[in-house]
């Protein structure tokens, strides 16, 4: 167990002040590297199976740009609001940080709502599902895995908000906020590639 080399320099953010928390942040970056590989495998599967729609619709026939754009801007904005929250974390301004965190959560919920609506359109109205074709299996699992990650992220953020209320700013709570910030930005980056390689490519190429 590392001896806690506590850094008392006020120029060092709270989340980096204890050795334990520094290691956790590094560990989380390594985990994000693993997640990049995880999503890349899902992307590879999607791209390989994309041209195999069997009897079901193709991507060009299925995807609609409007809802995709709304989701993209919701998530992109939530990434910005998340980064604002980290700014106020470092400014040690609890009130403002919580406001920006809640905004982030709201935008995330909006994103999920749209995605549930989109999937509902496909499943209930178009009558397709993962059972329809290889292409649709790939689509639902790739985009669904991302959506599941967002859902877990919102649950996680809720837990952190509760802990912040109870304990205020400590090196550990600061680290927790920073880490979930990393997670949240990462999900936006993944969505960037989904937007590009699934939806846009699927509609025009």
């Amino acid at each position: 167990m590392a001896e806690s080399t506590h850094i008392h320099d006020k120029n060092v953010p709270l989340e980096y002040s204890k050795a334990e928390d520094r290691m956790t942040i590094l560990g989380f970056w390594v985990f994000l590297g693993a997640e990049v590989v995880l999503f890349s495998t899902l992307f590879a599967t999607y791209l390989v199976l994309h041209s195999r729609p069997a009897d079901g619709p193709t991507s060009a026939e299925l995807f609609k740009p409007e809802i995709v754009l709304i989701m993209t801007f919701l998530l992109l904005t939530s990434s910005f609001t998340g980064s604002m929250a980290i700014h106020y974390l470092r400014a040690q301004n609890m009130k403002k940080m919580i406001v920006w965190l809640l905004l982030t959560m709201l935008l995330g919920l909006g994103f999920l709502g749209c995605e549930i609506y989109e999937f509902h359109e496909y499943i209930a109205l178009e009558g397709v599902s993962i059972k329809t074709s290889a292409f649709l299996s790939g689509f639902f699992v790739l985009v669904g895995t991302h959506g599941l990650h967002v859902t877990l992220g919102i649950g996680w953020l809720t837990l952190i908000l509760i802990q912040l209320k109870k304990r205020g700013f400590t090196p550990r709570t600061a680290r927790k906020v920073f880490v979930i910030g990393l997670y949240w930005h990462f999900l936006d980056i993944v969505w960037l590639f989904i937007f590009t390689l699934v939806y846009l490519s699927g509609m025009v190429l």
């Binding site: 970056w29 990049v36 791209l47």
Partner: peptide, 15 residues
């Protein structure tokens, strides 16, 4: 991160 993206490209392009 560079290594992760590099691996990602290998997996996607390779597959």
């Amino acid at each position: 991160m560079v290594h992760a993206f590099f691996t990602a490209i290998i997996i996607v392009a390779g597959s």
